Computed example of a mutant assay.
Amino acid sequence: MEDILRPIYQERASQANTIGVLMIEKKKKKFPTTDTFDFILLIIIKSGEQPVFVKHYTFNDKKAAMHIVTQAQLNEWMLLGNNRKIFDWLYEGKVLFDRNEYIANLKRELMEFPFYGRKMKMGIEFARLIRRYTDGKAFFDEYHYLDAYNYVVQSLHHLARLAVIENGFHPEVTVWHQVKNIDPEIYKLYQELVCSEETLEKRLELLFLASEFLIHSRTQIGSSHILSVLEEKASWSFNEMLNHPELKAYSVDLGILLEYLIDKNLIKIVREDTKGQAIFHRYYQVAEKLF
């Protein structure tokens, strides 16, 4: 099959902008890693007009997809974890072209998973966890149990991913397979939520209690990144945080994370006068004693 696809990737590999080409072959009929395609050609380029360009091909009774991805987009996926398949592609893909050992170095970095990269990813997952848990609890308190269930499942996924990252691994598509060995307690919680014969209300009630403890136990490691950034200066406006290069990745979850850390006395509010009476600017600073 590689011979059939060779003219496609060789044309791209000959271009100076291309820094790596991998081929990923579907291994199981119904496994989602390749989106049902028999082959994926992942072509990584330095830069491009589009961050992602996809083209589909068919030959004999097979189908293939070519994904041309900029280096910046690849880095974003790896940081935010919003394209989990990319890790499988990088781990399992056959290297067809590698300019200046870019892919070899990338794989080495994935395996070593530098601590600072983990710290930032844990912060992002922790923020997502707080958002889903808070929304789920609000729905539960209003007796919207099905909506609460949906958010609790999502919060457990973020808790699971956080545990995986904490242990030095990248979360994969089969994250629950990873968590079963890494953190059986979280795996057991998930099983109790989806398999228990208790009423939905009772399951949710128990899950919120257990989740609250697990979230609290991970507050230190989950907030370590944002607090280290905020220590760069005395106080911050929310807009300054929102536009900081490292905090942009927290996106819409930054506000809810900030309020959580205020509630936990890890961040304190600083008031400054405005031109109006009895209304103040709200700024934020890291509390003197973090933990």
Rank of each mutant, 00 (worst) to 15 (best):
193 L>G: 04
227 L>M: 09
197 E>C: 01
203 R>S: 08
251 S>R: 10
191 Q>G: 11
235 S>V: 01
199 T>L: 12
191 Q>N: 13
232 E>R: 14
257 L>D: 04
231 E>L: 13
173 V>Y: 14
251 S>P: 02
193 L>C: 05
253 D>K: 01
229 V>E: 12
221 I>L: 11
181 N>R: 11
188 K>A: 12
208 F>M: 02
225 H>Y: 15
194 V>T: 14
258 L>A: 07
225 H>N: 10
169 F>R: 14
194 V>W: 01
230 L>I: 08
188 K>H: 11
198 E>Y: 13
188 K>Q: 14
191 Q>S: 13
166 E>V: 00
240 E>D: 14
187 Y>L: 03
175 V>I: 15
172 E>P: 03
183 D>G: 04
214 L>M: 14
253 D>M: 03
190 Y>C: 01
225 H>D: 08
207 L>R: 10
212 E>H: 11
197 E>F: 12
260 Y>D: 10
258 L>H: 07
253 D>V: 02
168 G>Q: 09
169 F>W: 07
227 L>P: 07
242 L>Q: 13
193 L>R: 04
226 I>D: 03
201 E>I: 04
263 D>M: 09
216 H>E: 11
244 H>E: 07
209 L>M: 01
195 C>I: 02
226 I>M: 12
167 N>S: 15
227 L>H: 08
234 A>Q: 10
227 L>A: 08
215 I>M: 05
209 L>C: 03
240 E>M: 07
260 Y>M: 04
260 Y>H: 14
